[in-house]
């Protein structure tokens, strides 16, 4: 069996990520998302919309790597075409539109899942291996720095991803989630403060850069402290275009190729997706509502649906 194939919906700043994915899967095409900038040196064909992409080649799966205001509509379009959809984050849809889409998926439509890229991150796996050692004791606190690329919806996706990762690393569900945020020059920065059922807490920072998933983590436990600085040495943000004279050569730690390959493999085998996420939508939607409110009022806002 050949490589699974995927149609990617991605932002121009994600060219390097697309190249990483194309080494693992057959990328049938790329649709530009999030803003007016253009891809500069992409090897894969670029399309304006799903219909024109599907007219050229039918992929095994469609993958959303970056959000836009049209994410929900494009997801529905893919599902209408019988294509499984994997997304880095949830769609921003009205309650009515969401009910329609989720009903379609739950009643025999193509799979739609999102998030959990971190679960395919080597950084996360190594951290979790260490965390479950008895000597580490109980988790107390997580500091996580993730990238939001500056846009509101990308910041939301980053917060959603980090909250899921906090649940995995701290070993408990959130009981309170507060969002604070500040935006200037079209660059959004947000902080989610999460209190878990086991009294552990997390401070999750979405910075306005295309920071790698699971890039910078500090996990404090009763028996010790775990830190990762895997973002250092790797390309971060727009400064990656600069050619350094001296640098730390690091392996490609982006989890997306394995995340997408695993999903596509399940779909090709007609197996259930590796994880389900539809039920997480209300809580994640509440984070977006809180994020918008925090930006508007300049205060700490609780995400109430948690």
């Amino acid at each position: 069996m050949g490589k699974p194939s995927a149609l990617l919906l991605a932002a121009p700043v994600q060219e390097q990520l697309i190249e990483s994915i194309s080494r693992r899967l057959n990328v049938t095409g790329v649709i530009g998302m999030g803003g007016t900038s253009r891809f500069r040196s992409l090897a894969s064909p670029v399309f304006a919309d799903i219909d024109s992409a599907l007219a050229q080649a039918r992929p095994d799966v469609v993958c959303f790597l970056a959000p836009s205001g049209r994410t929900g509509e494009l997801m529905r379009q893919a599902i209408d075409n019988g294509l499984p959809v994997l997304s880095a984050g949830p769609p921003d849809m009205s309650a009515r539109a969401w009910r329609g889409l989720s009903d379609q998926v739950e009643n025999g439509g193509s799979p739609l899942v999102w998030g959990r890229r971190f679960a395919y991150s080597e950084v996360h796996r190594r951290l979790l291996e260490q965390r479950v050692q008895p000597a580490m004791g109980t988790p107390v606190y997580l500091r996580c720095v993730g990238g939001g690329d500056g846009g509101l919806l990308a910041t939301w996706w980053s917060l959603c991803e980090m909250v899921e990762q906090a649940v995995a690393l701290l070993g408990a569900d959130p009981v309170h989630l507060y969002v604070s945020a500040k935006s200037a020059r079209r660059r959004c920065h947000a902080l989610a403060t999460v209190v878990m059922a086991n009294k552990a807490s997390a401070q999750l920072i979405a910075i306005p850069s295309s920071f790698p998933c699971s890039g910078d983590l500090t996990l404090l436990c009763g028996g010790g402290l775990l830190t990762s600085h895997t973002a250092f040495g790797g390309p971060v943000g727009d400064r990656s275009g600069r050619s350094p004279d001296y640098w730390l050569a690091t392996p490609d730690l982006t989890p997306e190729p394995e995340w997408l390959a695993d999903f596509a493999g399940h779909c090709v085998r007609a197996a259930d997706p590796p994880f389900a996420t539809l039920s997480t939508y209300p809580a994640q939607r509440a984070i977006l509502v809180a994020l918008r409110s925090a930006l508007k009022c300049g205060e700490v806002v609780e995400a109430r649906a948690v």
Partner: peptide
């Protein structure tokens, strides 16, 4: 978690 007078977090 703190907010300053210009909304910085």
């Amino acid at each position: 978690t703190m907010i300053d007078d210009s909304g910085r977090t």
